[in-house]
């Protein structure tokens, strides 16, 4: 097994946050005596990511996703624990490390607002020591993968959100980083732009074997790009594994939809599973995954079935239910 690109062991980050009670009394008290409390944003998390892996990093707002990403790329120092990214300690911000990583944040930009993206991209080329000819080749290649053309010559402020995000990606990937930290890269984009960005990230991973850690609230980003997901809640990892395993854990029941050519009683259908919906020639059942094969063969043998469909509940729905279900989550 090759050496992990990203290795995290008992990583913790505490923040000191000032507390203030509302109202004039609270304001005066806060002015005279600043009270602070320590908040644990990331609580002893451990995981590793292999070279070329695309891993989804999901969790509700305030779960610790962005704090973890910031520690992995070296923006902030961990309170305790170890982190190693391609053999470097990220917070040392060594040039050799910085040349191999990038951080793309959907809600933040590095392109200068009043200039065309190409102006900022040319500065990046100089910063990363890419020759002018090679710069042009890379711009052409990435622009074609992203579907960008004349937009690169228009001031950033005149671009649509989708065009701007694509230009941001071009600027962030010009130096061909092998590690990509992506924080909500499709935030606010329309469906077409979201798909384009996902396709681009997938091709980039295929072409350069880049390792990606992707945080997103759009499950479409995760399901279309990542086989593995890390689920974080209250600073702790509650799942690290494949999406399929997660779905199985979250939804131990499969949904089976039946259409029948003769009316059947509720009781005759109810013995195969839990009825969710029923008319005399239609039924929707929930059947435990483990009993699915035998139940379906029994249904086909005993009932006059004209159509049968087996499905999982949508992953978005499962995750939403999980995070809404309470404080102490364990899967």
């Amino acid at each position: 097994m090759s050496m992990a690109s990203i290795s995290v062991n008992a990583l913790t980050k505490n923040y000191s946050v000032s507390r203030k009670t509302p109202g004039i009394k609270g304001t005066l008290k806060h002015f005279l005596f600043r009270r602070t409390e320590t908040i644990t944003a990331v609580d002893e998390i451990s995981f590793s990511i292999q070279p070329g892996e695309m891993v989804g990093f999901i969790g509700p707002n305030g779960a610790g996703k962005t704090t973890t990403l910031k520690m992995l790329c070296g923006l902030i120092h961990p309170t305790s624990g170890d982190v190693s990214v391609i053999g470097h300690k990220p917070h040392s911000l060594e040039p050799g490390f910085l040349k191999q990583i990038t951080l793309v944040m959907g809600q933040k930009q590095q392109l200068l607002w009043d200039l065309p993206p190409l102006d900022s991209i040319k500065v990046n080329a100089a910063v990363y020591g890419i020759s002018p000819r090679e710069t042009n080749n890379r711009i052409d290649e990435l622009a074609s993968m992203l579907g960008l053309g004349n937009e690169l010559n228009r001031p950033v402020r005149k671009l649509s959100l989708g065009e701007r995000m694509k230009a941001e990606l071009l600027a962030a990937l010009l130096h061909r980083p092998s590690i990509l930290f992506l924080d909500e890269p499709t935030l606010g984009l329309d469906v077409i732009s979201q798909v384009r960005v996902r396709e681009f990230l997938s091709s980039y991973n295929e072409r350069y074997g880049a390792t990606m850690l992707l945080s997103s609230h759009y499950m479409g980003d995760i399901t279309s790009l990542c086989d593995r997901v890390i689920l974080i809640h209250h600073g702790q990892i509650i799942h690290d594994g494949s999406l399929i395993t997660l779905t199985e854990k979250l939804a131990p029941l499969k949904s089976v939809r039946l259409e029948l050519n003769k009316p059947q009683t509720r009781e005759s259908i109810g013995k195969y599973g839990l009825i969710e919906d029923y008319t005399d020639t239609f039924a929707q059942l929930l059947i435990p995954r483990k009993a699915l094969t035998s139940s379906i063969s029994n249904i086909l043998r005993d009932l006059p079935v004209t159509d049968l469909e087996v499905s999982d509940p949508p992953i978005e729905e499962l995750i939403r239910q999980l995070f809404e279900s309470g404080e102490n989550l364990s899967i």
Partner: peptide, 11 residues
């Protein structure tokens, strides 16, 4: 929050 991308550049 504009400092972050520039802080991650090797200059």
């Amino acid at each position: 929050g504009r400092l972050s991308p520039f802080l991650l550049q090797p200059v």
